[in-house]
Design a binder for these strands. Sequence first.
DNA 1: TTTCATTTGTACGTATGTATT
DNA 2: TAATACATACGTACAAATGAA
Lengths: 94, 94
Amino acid sequence: MDPDAEIDHEAPTPVYQQLAGILRARIERGDWAPNRQIPSEPQLVQTYGLARETTRKAIRVLIEDGLVVTVPGRGTFVAAADDSDATSASESNE
Amino acid sequence: MDPDAEIDHEAPTPVYQQLAGILRARIERGDWAPNRQIPSEPQLVQTYGLARETTRKAIRVLIEDGLVVTVPGRGTFVAAADDSDATSASESNE
DNA sequence: TTTCATTTGTACGTATGTATT
DNA sequence: TAATACATACGTACAAATGAA
């Protein structure tokens, strides 16, 4: 998924799934580091021109994927990347 | 949870969680047998006097608990009680 | 302590689309 | 074709949690 893709309301894929894919791509690209806060719901609403419920639905997908966690009253944060990604053969830096 | 409880809008527990608890109790009581259809969303809306989204939210809880499954265009059904999994830890929320 | 702004959570309303019968 | 039922999407409003002033 292109992290710079735009929402296509005509596409067969539901809008909330599109947004989830975009945000997932942006996290993987490093737009927000682990433990960093992603834009608030109102900000996402403004950026992508969606309703808040649609935005929340996309975030819920990311939560279920374990990519982000939300804290009431504070915000939504990129999950700490403490899982095992064993695809790369060499990792030398801490 | 009392399967005949009524929704209390003043209670601290969210309404959708109350409804989920009531429906769970009714399923466990046997109001609807496995593979049987539970009332449709409009019927639940009418019975409990809630908004449709609130009703859907309660049903989503039951889906995540593996208690029911929904089929677009048909309805929501009590899951077959062939529990061979180990993940369902939702019970006795009395 | 109180107040305020920010952010997420809950609840309701409405409209339209999709799938099945 | 039509009716039924769930899915998606937008809108509004208020409550609760957090942190800062």
